[in-house]
């Protein structure tokens, strides 16, 4: 019995060259399996090696989602669209929530677009490990793919729902500001936040199923905490920067600014959001990698 080995799993004994050999001389993978101690961040080499699988898992998620439905991908539009109608009536008309002088439907839809993506990918990502038990207890592949698949596949819905926004912008004769070029940054921030939280919550949920039950109302709370139905201008100035630590605040206000162009780009919120999203993503990946060794045992 060798003594406790201070080790990381799957140490590639001969680095680089062996694993990434050319087609003609197939590489001889050589690896060590042993108990892992401590923390470890993403093994990118492995991710590259399994990229085809990631592609097919995302493809499966996308194709399966609307199979045997009549409306198909129209659901990707209908979900935020009906929310918009409800919000416009309840908050816009009845409660008279201010909307920075923007027509309430487009004010809320511009927010619902990233929010619908965020809430759906987060919910599905949280449940992903529990639902994927049948697969990952039978075969090895980078476990990190499992919570990441919904985060990627929901981008398809996001893109479709975006078309609806364009239609609404034409209807309301809204011209996007020059800030629209920063949209990819906002989308990246949104994806990073969903990924980080998804890693955290899916890894927790596989051991503590409470998370699965809690996620639906947590998402509700997160929505009212985000400036979806109300504008960030309601937040008192001295708390604004702190509020920015919630990454979706910067994302949503940024979307409004980029697409509707009434307010300036909220770089303060986005900056704070980027910091906290980076922390969430990093710690999420670390926590996931640390706990993944026991997934198959506790599932």
């Amino acid at each position: 019995m060798p003594p406790q080995i201070p080790a990381s799993e799957l140490t590639s004994q001969s680095p680089g060259a062996e694993r990434t050999g050319t087609e003609t001389s197939p590489p001889v993978p050589h690896f060590v399996i042993r108990a892992r101690k401590g923390w470890q961040i993403v093994d990118w080499q492995e991710v590259v090696e399994y990229r085809d699988l990631l592609y097919f898992l995302v493809l499966r998620d996308v194709t399966v989602l609307y199979k045997q439905t009549v409306l198909g991908f129209a659901w990707a539009i209908l979900t935020p669209f009906f929310s918009m109608i409800v919000f416009s009536v309840v908050f816009g008309r009845l409660a008279k929530v201010p909307s920075d002088g923007i027509p309430y439907p487009i004010f809320s839809y511009a927010a619902l677009l990233p929010w619908t993506y965020f809430s759906q990918s987060l919910t599905r990502s949280t449940e992903s490990l529990i639902q994927g038990t049948a697969i990952f207890t039978k075969v090895y592949f980078p476990r990190l793919f499992i919570p990441m698949v919904p985060v990627f596949s929901k981008l398809v819905d996001f893109a479709i729902a975006f078309l609806m926004l364009i239609a609404m912008m034409i209807y309301y004769r809204v011209v996007p500001s020059a800030n629209v070029i920063f949209l990819p940054v906002l989308i990246l921030l949104m994806v990073a936040t969903a990924s980080g939280l998804g890693m955290w919550l899916s890894a927790l949920a596989i051991q503590y199923r409470d998370v699965k039950h809690a996620i639906s109302f947590v998402v509700q709370i997160l929505m009212y905490a985000a400036p979806v139905v109300w504008p960030v201008s309601l937040i008192p100035a001295q708390y604004r920067l702190w509020y920015g630590l919630y990454p979706m605040a910067g994302v949503i206000e940024g979307f409004r600014s980029a697409l509707i162009g009434k307010n300036p780009m909220p770089w303060d919120l986005i900056g704070m959001g980027t910091i906290s999203a980076a922390i969430i993503l990093l710690t999420g990946a670390l926590y996931f990698r640390r706990t993944e060794r026991i997934f198959a045992d506790v599932a």
Partner: peptide, 29 residues
């Protein structure tokens, strides 16, 4: 399951030379 890297050993180690395919079930996924 340890050899297929599905679960980790509590102690000890395994060294594998070669590409590993595991067939613990047909039709996974």
């Amino acid at each position: 399951k340890i050899l297929a890297r599905i679960t980790e050993p509590s102690s000890g180690q395994v060294v594998m030379h070669g590409r590993v395919g595991s067939l613990l079930e047909v039709g996974t996924g």
